[in-house]
Nucleic acid binder design. Sequence first.
DNA 1: CGCAGATGAGACATGAATGTCTCATCCAAG
DNA 2: CTTGGATGAGACATTCATGTCTCATCTGCG
Lengths: 198, 198
Amino acid sequence: MSHLRYSRLMAVDRDQVLRSAAALLTRRSTATMDEVAKAAGISRATLHRQFAGRDALVRALEALCIAECEAALAAARPDEGPAVDAVRRLIAEIEPNAPLLAFLYSENQLFEGEEQNEGWARIDERVAALFTRGQAGGEFRIDLTPAWLTEALYGLLASAAWAVAEGRVAPKDFTHMIAELLFGGVLRRDDPAPRKES
Amino acid sequence: MSHLRYSRLMAVDRDQVLRSAAALLTRRSTATMDEVAKAAGISRATLHRQFAGRDALVRALEALCIAECEAALAAARPDEGPAVDAVRRLIAEIEPNAPLLAFLYSENQLFEGEEQNEGWARIDERVAALFTRGQAGGEFRIDLTPAWLTEALYGLLASAAWAVAEGRVAPKDFTHMIAELLFGGVLRRDDPAPRKES
DNA sequence: CGCAGATGAGACATGAATGTCTCATCCAAG
DNA sequence: CTTGGATGAGACATTCATGTCTCATCTGCG
């Protein structure tokens, strides 16, 4: 049946469009549908055939980001080994998606009363669970709530992604900067923050 | 001369309008000029007479925020005593303006190529100088650049302000959460993070 | 009282982005 | 070759926020 190949081709195109849209909106968060279409090398009509509107496009980007964050979460093996190392792995895994995450993070403020994608809640939960595990295992201090640590991690990821995009910090320092600040804080100590991984 | 009283009254009204606009835009970043006017209890015409347009309004809010951040910076006495305490004072002083800061922080992404208010550069510089002082004095670790620490502080302030607005964390923990994470990091230690102030 | 200045209400035009539509073209499968 | 499906180009209407304008009203002051 031809419509099977059709579906498959559409899926491929859709993903390519989504990627280029992510790349563009990451830089220019107010880009119009016209610009998105041009950036993807397709016409606005085709873009509209794949995504009912700008809203649908952003929702699709949200779904993509959620999927990749969940993949990152899985790849980071959050239940394995010391929580410190798991968080470090998580940051490293999320790094490629940090710009998109930052875009959606600020875009969410526009989704005022509208329903939030429940995917974020799932991710929040798993990240918070990782921090909780670290606290239970005695690795992390217990006077900062997992909810705040999760929120702070998002904030640091977004800040770092933005700082890198603006050229204020070097891209190669991304993971190290976030992890070091998150783990060790800014205070100098005689007992430096332990490095469980290389 | 009547126009003197007029100027004074305008100034007062202008400030009131600015405050209510800040309060509204902090919650609904996409509020229209109509909503801003209604929130301020004036008509859209009068709002337009005081601020040429939405752009001018945001610029005015930016100027207000910069002024208050500089006031907070001054009140925090960044050159006085241990840098740790100075940063803690700074966070506490900025706290009331954190929501507005968070709004402008995300709004800045829309000011793509446009000129940035040089006030932010001044503030960045002074905050970075505070971190540099802490590093020079041996209080802060030197493997994280002052530029990144400054950026991270903004990110944490914005994250915390948003988390508080969303009801995910308690408002009273604001300063403590940020300071503790920024200073001590998340790792538990035998030697806890020193508390120079209460 | 009479006036000047400020305000509120609302009409109106503008511009931008969006969503919808049609039509010509192209391409690959039959 | 022929045809169905996808595409690109572009016209078109719609919506929404904005910016500008006018006019009636109100208020304080002389």
